[in-house]
Simulated scan of single mutants.
Amino acid sequence: MIMMMVEERPYFVDSATLEEDCRRKMNTYISALRSGYVRQLAADRGISETAGIEIVLFSSTEPTAMVKEMIELVNSELADERVTARWESWAPDVVDSEVVERALVTEAIGSVGAGWEFALVWANLRGQPGFRWDSGGRTTRKMPRRH
């Protein structure tokens, strides 16, 4: 399961504030995980098992050293709880609608389990100026495995 954090402000502007915001968000996510709240939300939506929890920070600029240190701390301290963290670029020149669609479909497929026949993914995303995407209700069908 993936928990996403999106930071639309660039890290080179007032980084101390952004670092503190990231620390608060990370602590909130970890508290929600440890309290069982996240797993309960997943169970309420029919997701009973996960391979772990991945916290992904998306931002248009590379995080500061302190934010990277927080990510590494999550990876080292929460590995036994099957929790990992990482950073991904959200820069418009790196992420386009095809990348977003592929990520959403991959997550939807992983969430519905092995017995599914089809999945309907409907998403409307708005982000940085010029980035707007509507899936239009994409249908994904399970493909037979080839040996």
Rank of each mutant, 00 (worst) to 15 (best):
V56A: 10
I55Y: 02
M66D: 09
R9C: 10
Y11F: 15
E72A: 15
R132S: 01
T61L: 03
I30E: 03
V100P: 00
M1F: 06
F131R: 08
R82S: 14
L125H: 07
A103S: 06
T64K: 10
W116V: 00
F12H: 15
E117R: 14
V105D: 05
T106D: 04
S35T: 09
S135D: 06
S76E: 15
E107T: 12
E54H: 08
V83Y: 04
E101D: 04
M4P: 07
R39W: 11
I55L: 01
I71G: 10
A85C: 15
E7N: 04
R82Q: 13
A51E: 14
G130D: 01
M70E: 14
A123Y: 01
N124S: 13
V112Y: 05
E117T: 14
R146H: 05
G36D: 01
E62K: 04
K25C: 11
E62C: 01
P92Y: 02
M1G: 12
R145S: 08
L78H: 14
M5D: 13
G110M: 11
K142Y: 02
S89C: 02
G52A: 12
E49R: 15
M70T: 13
T61Y: 03
S60F: 05
D21W: 06
R141L: 15
G52P: 01
E98A: 15
T17Y: 01
Y11L: 09
G137Q: 09
C22K: 03
N124T: 08
Q128D: 14
A65V: 13
V95A: 11
S97N: 09
G52Q: 10
S135R: 03
V121I: 15
D93C: 09
T84L: 14
E20L: 04
S135Q: 07
V94R: 07
L125Q: 03
R138E: 01
A91T: 02
R86Q: 03
M5R: 04
L125A: 15
V6Q: 14
K25T: 05
A123F: 00
W133I: 06
M4A: 14
W116Q: 08
D93S: 03
V6W: 14
S15I: 04
W116Y: 08
V67Y: 07
V105L: 03
L41T: 09
M5Q: 05
L57D: 05
F12A: 10
V6R: 15
Y11R: 00
T106Y: 00
A79N: 10
S15T: 10
I109L: 08
L33A: 12
P129W: 02
T139W: 03
V74N: 01
L104T: 08
G130L: 02
A16Q: 13
A32I: 05
